[in-house]
Simulated scan of single mutants.
Amino acid sequence: MLSKGVGLFPTESAAKMCEYVQLSESLGYDHVWFGDSQNIWRESSTVMGAAAVGTTKVVLGTGVTNAVTRHPSLLASTWATLAEMTDGRVALGIGTGDSSLRTMGLKPLKLAELEESITQLRTLFRGEKVREATSGAEYHLNYLTAPVDIPIYIAASAPKILKMSGRIADGVIVLVGTAPHFIEAALKTIEEGAAESGRTLDDIHIVLWTPTAISDDRKEARDLVRAHVSRVAIRPLPAQVEPELESAIDRIRQSYNYYEHMNTEASHADLVPDELVDLFALAGTRDECALRLKQIESLGVDQVSIVPFVRPGESRAPTIRAFAEIVDNQS
Score class of each variant (00 low, 15 high):
S44Q: 13
S26V: 11
P180F: 12
F9I: 10
A15H: 14
L162C: 01
S247G: 03
D170N: 15
I154E: 00
V90M: 01
M48N: 07
I154H: 02
Y139Q: 05
R218E: 14
I234C: 07
P211I: 11
V310A: 14
R311P: 05
T319Y: 07
T86M: 04
A185R: 08
V207P: 01
Q330A: 13
T319D: 05
S247P: 11
A221H: 00
I252L: 07
S24Q: 03
S100I: 05
S215P: 12
T56H: 08
D250T: 14
K110S: 07
A112S: 12
N39V: 08
G93C: 08
S267T: 15
K160I: 08
P211S: 12
V68E: 15
A52T: 08
G166C: 00
R226T: 13
H268I: 08
S73V: 14
E192C: 07
L2N: 07
P72L: 02
V90E: 01
I168H: 00
M262W: 10
V232T: 15
S267W: 15
E260S: 15
R292T: 11
T200M: 06
L175M: 13
K160L: 09
S117L: 05
A15K: 09
L299P: 05
A80T: 00
D30Y: 01
S117M: 03
V176R: 02
P308A: 09
N257E: 13
A50H: 10
R131K: 11
T210F: 08
M17F: 07
